[in-house]
Design a protein around this nucleic acid. Structure first.
Lengths: 349, 349
DNA sequence: ATCGGGGATGTTATCGGTAACATCAGGTGC
DNA sequence: GCACCTGATGTTACCGATAACATCCCCGAT
């Protein structure tokens, strides 16, 4: 017996309880003494209905506790209100907040998200998952976190509904214009001004679009200052990966730029165990600004991203594709550097 | 323009592309020269079809790339394959993994999860959300993280489909038998053996069922040993709350038992800033064993919970209610104590 | 040769909505 | 006073599947 699955006996009784059969517009029509079409019209907000008739129908609606049958509705209208969302690793804080934002945006627009989590370990999971979402009758398909493989599979697949491939939390990937690139440049610039010259990057998985963008921004910011990166270690976004990477760091590196906060946490611990002080000997930065980052020890300097807003924006773009012009695409606040205590002057300055 | 919403021009082209109209069983039937019913039978695995006919139909199926219209199917069968899931705060690691487990279990059984995230700030959000899920035609409704208010609202509501109220990650709440209670007793016992006598609890929100259970287990474990708790500080599961609570801790407390790992992280930082060493002066424990907990500084002693399995188990119980006997309810591995470096002998021992 | 039976397949009704068209009553114009 | 228009409402068809019932055909038993 599992904890989560547990319940009181009371629950059990209530859980099974339910009304016999849901009322249809025909039931309502009969009770109100009108035709089912009149009911349908009223439900759709059609204006030309006599006040008295309207009242009778509304009464009947309430009496029978009418709820529309969505299957029937989407059968006739030919469009459902479900959106298929593909994502990796929903338990990672970044992606999960993106999903949260997307789900909220969908709900506001009267849609629901059908979330399909991809299993990292499954080789042909992508194709299979794309197949699954494509089978169901969806209003649209959105990919919220993408790898190279995902991108390729997505391009190959012919979807029968509008689809949208979000480039993860990073964006266009253009180091000159992407908001995150600007923030990254700002971050590197601040460290440069503090005297740092040897930088190392803790990247995400090499095949993730987000990793690629983040690394590109990092490299661009270095190049702009005439610096060459000490190297990039690719991890899997986990603290364990950050720990491992930081354990075998070159001695001359004074600044570690991590592609997310969790890996930075691992790096923090590895450095501490190696007897190197942060920020005395090495400065460490994160990316995302998850809520915990402010409570790492030392509190983490990072780049704040509004992932919820990004998820909402991505979903709204899909909605715009489903019914153009109907939705206003929100502008997310730009990424910004948050300076805390994990960064400081380069040693010897 | 938001990062997440961004894409290459290439995406844009493909995104809009889609086939004109999906093939129906009638299209397939016509192409194969049979009746639509024959197609339907074949799709349902009806055995009595001549091999030659079967072949023709399968050919047509493939040619037209047939996909069933789920709306039509659930309209006739009278049952959908969507499950409404209500949860708080999907960005918290614990709940989000529960959702992940539930979603995976649902998908395996051929259902999809329609996730509704409750807004904490919204006072009557619960009623409204219950209303929303109850409106849609769902196969079942599950509540994955519950507060007292949620529990009450759930009991008041008359659902038209099977419903299930998971008692969050904790379970029955019986301090004598719940697996988590056993682990908590083990944890307290180990600290007791290390000489700790003054314990303080960092609890979750007072109205959360999970908080109540966790605190009850904590108190029961103390009582069993003739101890009295120094007190409970109720936080909102966040590191910030843990930080605040630990900042005003009584001097004689030597062990802080947090109800989740994030709050423990906050406590760790607060103690460090107050000049109290962990575990030299104070021992700190978490709960959940999120992946990052092993990389806190010091690495956190905590109770490992398989939240993904719990989510799957909870969902399977709902499925069992939807179609009894068809699903096997998995048994999740029990909770267990994971000793790391944030705990040690009480000072002066 | 005829009838019965059962396997393979076809026909029709149905689910609960929406859309298109039909009807009906009352008021207006001439 | 009658044709006509229009606003309110009713009727019918249809979406794409499944279920129930009907039919057809072939084969063996009598």
């Amino acid at each position: 017996m599992t904890d989560a699955a547990d319940e009181t006996a009371d629950d059990r009784d209530r859980g099974g309880a339910r009304s016999a059969r849901a009322a249809t517009i025909y039931d309502v029509a009969e009770l109100a003494g009108v035709s089912h079409q009149t009911v349908s019209r009223l439900l759709k907000g059609f204006p030309g209905i006599r006040p008295e008739t309207r009242h009778r129908v509304e009464q009947a609606l309430a009496t029978l506790d009418y709820r529309p049958n969505l299957s029937a509705r989407s059968l006739t209208t030919g469009r459902s209100h479900r959106i298929g969302a593909l994502t990796y690793e929903i338990d990672q804080v970044g992606p999960s907040r993106i999903v949260q934002g997307a789900a909220a945006a969908a709900r506001r627009a009267g849609y629901v998200l059908d979330i399909v989590t991809l299993d990292n370990s499954d080789e042909n999971g992508i194709e299979k998952s794309l197949e699954v979402v494509n089978q169901n009758d969806l209003a649209g398909i959105i990919v919220l976190a993408s790898s190279e493989e995902m991108t390729a599979a997505f391009r190959r697949t012919r979807f029968r509904v509008p689809s949208y491939l979000s480039a993860d939390e990073d964006g266009a990937g253009d180091p000159a214009t992407a908001p995150l690139a600007l923030a990254m440049d700002d971050l590197i610039g601040q460290l440069y001004d503090l005297g740092h010259r040897r930088f190392h990057h803790l990247g995400g998985p090499a095949n993730w679009v987000a990793s690629q963008h983040r690394e590109a921004y990092y490299l661009a910011a270095l190049t702009r200052r005439g610096l060459v990166s000490s190297g990039t270690s690719h991890g899997d976004w986990s603290s364990a990966a950050g720990f491992a990477a930081a354990s075998e760091l070159a001695d001359d590196v004074t600044a570690i730029i991590s592609a997310n906060d969790q890996m930075a946490l691992g790096a923090l611990l590895a450095l501490d165990q190696a007897g190197r002080s942060v920020p005395g000997d090495v400065s460490v930065t994160g990316l995302d600004d998850i809520p915990e980052a402010a409570f790492y020890n030392p509190p983490l300097t990072t780049i704040h991203l509004d992932t919820i807003a990004q998820g909402a924006a991505a979903l709204t773009r899909l909605l715009d594709r489903i019914s153009p012009g109907e939705f206003e695409i929100p502008v997310a606040p730009p990424a910004r550097v948050v300076v805390r205590s994990s960064t400081g002057p380069a040693p010897g300055r």
